[in-house]
Simulated assay, not measured.
Amino acid sequence: MARKSAEVRREEILAATVEEIEATGLRTLRVADVAERLGLSASLVIYHFATKEALVAAAFDHAGRNDLDHARNLAAGTGSARERLSEVIGWYMPAGSTRSWKIWIDGWSAGLFDEDLKSTFSALDRDWKTILADLIVEGIGSGEVASRGDEAGAQSADGFAEACATRILAYLDGLAVQLLFNSDSVSQEKLRAWVGEFLTSELD
């Protein structure tokens, strides 16, 4: 049997780490458990990732990049800018992504005390904002989005789009927390309705 390349092995380890985080959480994550999922030795995992902390940061980056790749495909698809923006936001929402929001909330908490993990999340956040902002700018150009600058008209389309993208992501992140911890009062149906209302207030 041919040996797997280092790149393929790394990808397998990262995917298994994400699965383990999703199943048990970061607090109890062990390198040995990740290795066991793949039938490997813990030393081989450490060979590819020098520390548990480096493994965790790389695993979140791996999961985030996969979601971003899908979002970019949606953004580059057919339909109006506003329609594609809605598709990307639908993918980001708690019910849209293939990844459980549990791992992201778990990771955000850990990132408060881990600079590498914090940097990973900051980079992912910037990329999400760029995708949304580019679609908003496109929508402004086509007349689908109303750019509301200040009274002097000094705010550029880019500046408005970046601020709007930041507010949208902050709103979605907050709703994800509410959905996970207050599911009795925040249903998927309510969430979709609230997001629709929020986008109307931001973009019209």
Score class of each variant (00 low, 15 high):
R10D: 00
E11S: 15
A15V: 05
T17G: 09
T17Q: 11
E22M: 07
T24M: 06
D33T: 12
D33E: 12
V34S: 08
E36S: 12
R37F: 01
S41E: 09
S41F: 01
F49R: 14
A54V: 11
A54L: 10
V56P: 02
A58M: 08
H62E: 04
A63H: 06
G64T: 08
N66Y: 05
H70D: 07
A71F: 11
R72S: 03
R72C: 06
L74S: 11
A75G: 10
S80K: 11
A81Q: 11
E83Y: 07
P94Y: 02
S100L: 10
I103H: 07
W104A: 08
W104E: 01
I105L: 15
D106M: 13
S109P: 00
A110M: 10
G111Y: 01
G111M: 05
F113N: 05
D114N: 15
D116H: 11
K118E: 03
S119R: 15
S119I: 00
S122Q: 12
A123L: 13
D125H: 10
D125K: 13
D127L: 11
T130S: 13
L132E: 00
V137L: 07
G139M: 10
I140W: 01
I140Q: 05
G143C: 06
G143D: 02
E144F: 03
V145R: 08
R148C: 03
G149D: 00
E151T: 10
G153A: 06
A154L: 15
T166R: 12
R167P: 00
I168M: 08
G174S: 07
V177G: 07
Q178M: 12
L179A: 13
L179C: 06
F181Q: 08
S185E: 08
S185V: 14
V186E: 00
V186R: 13
S187F: 01
G196T: 10
G196A: 08
E197S: 14
E197Q: 14
F198W: 04
T200H: 14
E202N: 05
E202R: 12
L203E: 04
D204V: 14
